[in-house]
Amino acid sequence: MSKLVLVGAGHAHMTIMDNIPAIRAKGHDVVVIGPGERHYYSGMGPGMLGGDYKPQDISFPVKRACEQAGATFLVDKCVSVRPDENIVVLESGTEIPYDVASFNTGSSIVDDVVRPGSEDIYTVKPIENLLKGRERVLSLARRDHVRIAVIGGGPAGVEVAGNAWACGQEAGGNVSVTLFHGRNFMSKAPEGVRRRCRETLLRQGVELVGNAYVTAVETRRITLETGERHSADVIFIAMGVRPRPLFAPSGIPAGPDGGLLVNKYLQSPAYPNIFGGGDCIWFEPRPLDKVGVYAVRENPVLHHNVLAQLEGTPLQEFDPGGDYLLIYNTGGRTGVLHKYGIIFGGKPAFWIKDHIDSAFMKAFKPEYERTGRYA
């Protein structure tokens, strides 16, 4: 019996995990490795911080679902790969052999500015950190005014700042929020998107601090490159993402950002039995933004290609597609939408995002989570 190993239980592996029974019926064993029993959908993470969603609303019970489908699920973390031996090495020391492996290990937040040992500092990935930050804000706000700082001027910083404000409103308004956005604010977004996001945050009372980068973050203190210092009780880090340093140290070709180098088949050019999707890859034909839409689009191709590799049938090319819809959750059930040059904000933008995200969750959640009934 050949073995398929899925390293990561994220968005790009959803279709494969949904088809585990059919894969096993063809005579293939399936092992899934994930850091937790549930996988959180990052697109709804800021809404969880702001109180729009509960943890179970934005997460998949991946361990339970995979095990009920007949796969082996290991709560662990891949720390290296021995590609010439077809072995994945886990943090626990366990070594897992594979015939075909697919990686969907996501990305981690750039947090180089955080001093070791600091407290009350939360990177926005893993998404569970936003829940921890929310609980900390609500706990502190029961006793005193809470100063929240968000570090990062991109979409994640904007979404976390707006939803930190919403969390503060839930706490009785006993919260102030400051967004430190360096020298740029939403620099990759169109001007209309930048303007609407800025206006929304200012209307909410979020203070915007720019024109200087943050160089150090420690417990209750933020230092700018100018030497200027600011105080905060709770600090969120949203400074951008990068793949974990897994592939190049394992001798597997990687892209400029350290992500797994893959060809048009989402396949390693050097190791044809290794595939990948989502934030952890570098797509050789052209760089892709680190957005969830590509992981979702990669789903059917990864499913087809890992099975094709196992069975010796032709692979399918991945077409990233054209423009995609972007909606930012700016807190307080408001948002900013952008596609094909159409830009608008407010509650209608949030309603559209909520509808799309909720439909995505419903499509991939097992029957027992959707209805409370067991088959």
Rank of each mutant, 00 (worst) to 15 (best):
A349F: 10
A156Q: 04
P272V: 05
D233N: 10
E367S: 14
L74R: 12
G292T: 09
V296N: 14
A238T: 09
G70T: 13
I281C: 04
P190W: 00
P61G: 15
K125G: 14
Y374K: 13
F344K: 05
S118I: 05
I58H: 04
G205A: 03
R297I: 06
E298W: 12
Q68N: 15
E225Q: 15
T178S: 07
A156T: 11
G173N: 12
Y324E: 11
Q267M: 07
G152W: 01
V88H: 05
A295V: 09
Y324V: 08
C167V: 09
L302N: 04
Q204V: 11
R64C: 13
N263Q: 11
P190H: 01
K63T: 12
K125H: 14
P348R: 08
Q56F: 15
E207L: 10
F236T: 00
R198K: 14
I342A: 06
I237P: 02
D144V: 15
S107P: 09
G345V: 00
A161E: 03
G372M: 07
L288K: 10
G162N: 05
S80H: 08
K132A: 09
Y41A: 12
G50L: 06
K77P: 09
Y98R: 01
A71T: 00
P190M: 05
V217G: 06
V177S: 04
Y368K: 13
G205M: 03
A156S: 12
Y294K: 08
G341R: 04
A232I: 03
I235Q: 07
V113A: 15
E135W: 09
T219M: 07
L261V: 07
A349Q: 03
A171M: 00
G292I: 02
G335I: 04
D279E: 07
P300I: 06
G321A: 07
V146T: 01
E37W: 08
F247P: 00
L288G: 06
V234F: 03
V124G: 03
G117R: 11
L288V: 08
K290E: 09
V150T: 03
L288H: 06
Y294S: 10
I235K: 04
D84C: 15
K63P: 05
G259F: 01
N104P: 10
A101G: 03
G51H: 11
I222C: 05
Y271M: 05
L246K: 01
P35W: 02
P35F: 01
N263A: 08
M44P: 04
K188P: 07
G47T: 10
Y368D: 15
H28A: 10
K290A: 14
V100P: 01
V291N: 10
K264Y: 08
G45M: 11
A22D: 08
G153V: 02
N184V: 11
R115L: 08
S231T: 15
G332K: 04
